[in-house]
Design a protein around this nucleic acid. Sequence first.
DNA 1: TTGATATCGTGAAAAGATTCACCGGAGTTG
DNA 2: CAACTCCGGTGAATCTTTTCACGATATCAA
Lengths: 220, 220
Amino acid sequence: MKKDMDRMIIPKPAIVRLSTLYVLLENLEAEGKSMIYSAEIGKLLGVPSHTIRKDISFLRQAGTGNGYEITNLKNIIAEYLGFNKYKKACIVGMGRLGTVITTKNGFYSNQYAVVAGFDNNPEKIKKGRNDMDLYPMSKLKEVIDREQIKIGIITVPQSSARKVANELIDCGIKGIINFSPVLIEINREDVFIRNIFIAGEFNILSALISQYENKQTLGE
Amino acid sequence: MKKDMDRMIIPKPAIVRLSTLYVLLENLEAEGKSMIYSAEIGKLLGVPSHTIRKDISFLRQAGTGNGYEITNLKNIIAEYLGFNKYKKACIVGMGRLGTVITTKNGFYSNQYAVVAGFDNNPEKIKKGRNDMDLYPMSKLKEVIDREQIKIGIITVPQSSARKVANELIDCGIKGIINFSPVLIEINREDVFIRNIFIAGEFNILSALISQYENKQTLGE
DNA sequence: TTGATATCGTGAAAAGATTCACCGGAGTTG
DNA sequence: CAACTCCGGTGAATCTTTTCACGATATCAA
């Protein structure tokens, strides 16, 4: 029953899709649904059903041939992709955005826990409005080590984002979600950065829309 | 001097990179820098220099052979990708996240304007704390038509996200930035959705980190 | 002007991701 | 227990994207 033996490398886009699928399955499970078909998933995710089947087939252990059992599929994805390994995160920058993001109001899954918040403004770390512990920046390494945190969120202003990113990496953080509108230089293949770049999203949409329009015009 | 004639189709990932590059160039320009090399850009964006050169070469009109003039490159990208076409956006959901995102605190580029905010809670649209006009949901179509808005931001709770997305699309919106933690069904190729999915980002990082670790273990 | 150096631009090769098409197993029906 | 239908699984074909390698062009110094 070779499980780890032939664990192949999954295309990155497939990882991203499966990660999203996982959240979808969580939602469906909460709604009380128990089975789902590839075609249905595809519709919900906006991708063709064969893409879904292929993605799932990379896991090499899923279905029985007739639909997917939601809880089971969810667990297989979590296990295969290692979701259960790194559940703790910390956040640097307790301004308004940082506070909103980490408030348990449904904008982040309760599967993960943001266990520590940092800011170098003492005022910001006084307010006990959050569900997590707040610390000054000087405690960064201590807390990350103690809590074994591997994921960091950056919500500091532009000017200090890069510095903070480097500090996090030095403290052993392996994954960063960056909300600050600045690009972070990465030159280590063992650290992953997800830039959530609101200004960039506008540009991307703008470009996609007008590229689509051009295509239409050319085609006619 | 055929410009539009041989306008080729640019790979989507290249569009996304160029869109990000644009924001980088804005930053650099603001810092007073005037020239930049592909290697430098690559370092800042975390991609190899040849990828940058290739991306820029899709534009077919850029360099002189020795570095890029920042302002010029910026303008070429904007022109080619149509950034100057759709600058107006609206936002639905004036809760805390919606308010933070649209506050001019540096989290979104001043190149775009969120000109209207909607909410169906009359309380939320009373506070004059924002820089934009606020309306009840009933005015959606009227305002979108009048202002010729093509981009919409969704910051409503999970339960109504899908409904809101459909309403926006019905009103003629062509690009959506969705912050709600729910997947939106799209079955129109003329509407583009960018899901900013915080819970999903955690999963993705978690998966990338553990996939990396597996690779390391296998390789040794 | 000439040579040396640095950097871009791009066609072609390689790698990577998606789509296709068909096989086979699981339910279902009579 | 066939026969039929519906789906998932997956190798192979196709399509897309990235990487490579090298010719061409600009810059600078002497």
